[in-house]
């Protein structure tokens, strides 16, 4: 791993860290949300960008984490760290089961199978409405969100603490993704994306690599969902809907698929775009749609992908 790649990522994280001393309250709150959702987008990118598997159903994993955390804390009596851990483990289990099933489909079939399973998951949330409160959802009260951990009090209602926790999570993620994609494992994934049959012929167990990528991707989505529920105190069926499967696709495409920092950038840019628009118009749908179309037509590689192609060849 070259030094400048490490330096670039460290610089991004340091910049985010430094921002909290100068940024306004609003920027702090917004960036917290973006960082949590960036974990979702990065998990998605591992599967879509690097392995070439376009899922239209990642909301089911996001929702897995979301509901595991929300139901775990409000009904099962788990503490916040326990619920987070449980949500992560359930994320591993659910994405493993899904991986075994959906990876049998290829191409467009894979997209539709994931879409269908995600829709079934969404309906399941509604079906168990007595536990999930369906669309209305679950609020996690502050009494749960202020807890003591390893002898010190953690107050998740504190915006700055949340910011730094989200940043910590993002830092772990960036490190993980960077290590993964620069490793042999990552190179094999890219080889699968470029030519699955040839990679198989070279003796790689393609199915196993795809499965592992799928499970990591699904688990990261669940981690993001759990963090979202615990930090922002809410879980509801809307967050399991198709819309939330399309979000990470959009963010990844915008920032640049198969770049380490692209999903993060895409999440941020899209967030700010919608946020900017919602104040004076009601055309947020139009913006989302237009960005998607424009990306497909003119910038299939996204922001960082285009920069890498033209200027910075070394960009990971």
């Amino acid at each position: 791993m070259t030094a400048r790649i490490v330096l670039l990522h460290l610089a991004v994280l340091l910049l985010l860290f430094a921002l909290q001393f100068i940024a306004s309250d609003y920027v702090i709150l917004t960036l917290t949300r973006i960082m949590v959702l960036a974990v979702y987008a990065s998990g998605y990118n591992l599967l879509f960008g690097y392995s070439g598997l376009l899922s239209l159903g990642h909301a089911m994993f996001f929702a897995t984490g979301l509901y595991a955390a929300a139901i775990g804390t409000t009904r099962a009596g788990l503490s916040v760290p326990e619920a987070f851990l449980a949500a992560t483990l359930i994320g591993v289990v659910v994405s493993s089961i899904m991986g075994v099933i959906v990876l049998r489909a290829r191409g467009v079939g894979f997209m539709i199978v994931t879409l269908m399973f995600s829709q079934a998951a969404f309906l399941t949330v509604l079906y168990f409405g007595d536990y999930t409160r369906g669309d209305e959802g679950i609020v996690i009260l502050d009494t749960i969100r202020i807890f003591s951990f390893l002898g010190r009090t953690i107050d998740l209602t504190d915006p700055l603490l949340r910011y730094n926790l989200a940043l910590a999570l993002l830092a772990i993620l960036v490190a993980l993704i960077l290590v993964l994609v620069r490793s042999r494992f990552g190179h094999v994934l890219v080889a699968i994306r470029e030519n699955e049959d040839r990679t198989a012929m070279l003796g790689y167990d393609v199915a196993r690599y795809k499965f592992i990528a799928f499970v990591i991707s699904g688990t990261l989505s669940a981690v993001s969902g759990a963090t979202y529920a615990l930090m922002f105190a809410y879980a509801g069926s809307t967050l399991a809907s198709i819309q939330y499967s399309i979000h990470p696709l959009l963010w990844t495409l915008l920032g640049g698929a198969s770049t380490t920092l692209g999903p993060m950038l895409g999440t941020g840019v899209m967030f700010l775009l919608v946020d900017f628009a919602s104040g004076f118009t009601n055309v947020s749908l139009l913006i989302t749609g237009a960005v998607l179309i424009a990306l497909v037509l003119f910038f299939p590689k996204g922001i960082l992908g285009s920069i890498r192609q033209r200027y910075l060849k070394w960009l990971p």
């Binding site: 376009l54 696709l249 055309v283 749908l285 139009l286 749609g289 237009a290 998607l292 179309i293 497909v296």
Partner: peptide, 13 residues
């Protein structure tokens, strides 16, 4: 698929 998802939002709007 991605482009027609975009179109979906545009038409809804």
């Amino acid at each position: 698929i991605v482009a027609t998802i975009g179109l979906l939002f545009v038409i809804q709007q």
